[in-house]
Design a protein around this nucleic acid. Sequence first.
DNA 1: GTACAATCCTTTGTATACAAAATGCAATTA
DNA 2: TAATTGCATTTTGTATACAAAGGATTGTAC
Lengths: 232, 232
Amino acid sequence: MGDNFTVNMDEFLPLRDVVFNTLRRAILTGELKPGERLMEIHLANRLGVSRTPIREAIRKLELEGLVTMIPRRGAEVAQITEKSLQDVLEVRRALDALCVELACDRITSDEKEALKNACDEFEKATATGDVTTIAGADVALHDIIVRATGNQRLIQLINNLSEQMYRYRFEYIKDEKGHDNLVNEHRMIYESILQGDKEKAAEAARLHIDNQEQSIIRQIRLEREQQLRKKK
Amino acid sequence: MGDNFTVNMDEFLPLRDVVFNTLRRAILTGELKPGERLMEIHLANRLGVSRTPIREAIRKLELEGLVTMIPRRGAEVAQITEKSLQDVLEVRRALDALCVELACDRITSDEKEALKNACDEFEKATATGDVTTIAGADVALHDIIVRATGNQRLIQLINNLSEQMYRYRFEYIKDEKGHDNLVNEHRMIYESILQGDKEKAAEAARLHIDNQEQSIIRQIRLEREQQLRKKK
DNA sequence: GTACAATCCTTTGTATACAAAATGCAATTA
DNA sequence: TAATTGCATTTTGTATACAAAGGATTGTAC
């Protein structure tokens, strides 16, 4: 069992939030796999707390769609189907487009500067070839754009939707041939925002999502095939 | 205190879900007012359950944004500010447009029939002038469109965002001059979907939201003025 | 060997008990 | 009179206890 599955006591939060963050992280990184049962006493012992904060954390994960409740049987990690992912991406496509459009109107000069830096950093990161570094730079870049909208609700929703695909992030970055596409897509978005060209920015954002979709769906089909082969 | 603030024992659900639905309803109808504290023992006594299900329900409301947690002080009903509502509407505008676009592509002939009926029903409802009836017909109409997308995630998100504005629904329906606008807007959306004209449908949906925004914002400003006057 | 049934064990659902923090109030002092 | 300190009360945060439901296992009968 992985060793990063522990409570982070540095945090000065109610236990339920610590547990919530811990479990969520474990699910998104794939440490807790789809279909796996979340048993309260088990988790409580493992995390060194009582069942109460565990239960409260599960209630939040339930609403977030990361776990599904089965009556009288408890929680299990939500299955990701191809359909559910397409649903998520369909929504993200619209919201990401909205995001860059709003960013065109509202981005400050400071944020423009930060965006430029993040773009350069991303290009550097791809040069290293290290997947973790690239993923980090990618998140940083998107974060700046999302925050530039100034719309709290939008920020929250996009973050939540992005999370649903976190498990596939690594594969998706590895998958992209030489990362050149990725760099270009980012640069296109970045430049459109600087120019304040909403239409172009939205189109670039949609293209970006579409390419991710291709790559992730391919990944899912691969995984499913492997699972089927295993069963036989 | 209102008397529809009771648990509905007909439901065959865990108490936490019954409590969740009850509290949510109370918040959305305005029975629990923004800023009002949600005290656990108090609620527990009132609903005739222990604190545990109350707490679990509050965790879900917290994630849904209907209550805000203050550390070591508990939950209170979330304040609705003009900004937060504009944020919500900005997102809904994009998602409603997406909705009707998808509906154009995916609506079945059965659903077309249902849509036509709902549209007629709405027109009849406006004729009665009864706000509750109109609101009901409005929800029914929108529901059909949203469900026609076949996108579970989108359905869930739109429902959640709509809820945030439930408190203002009545005022907004009353506000619309003679309801003629409302009927026309609906008919425009309905016809565009039947014709499969995505562009027109999206534009109509956006207009529909924009008009609601106008009306709701006006309402909020009115309320705020009244509050200010009270304080003096 | 298979099917069915009784029993046990696990796990959730709910209630309650206890500890710690925060708030409000009162008393005392400057 | 105003301010501050200390105490009491309230309320949350966490743990634990108890009940009921489900599932699994074992034993028995055919």
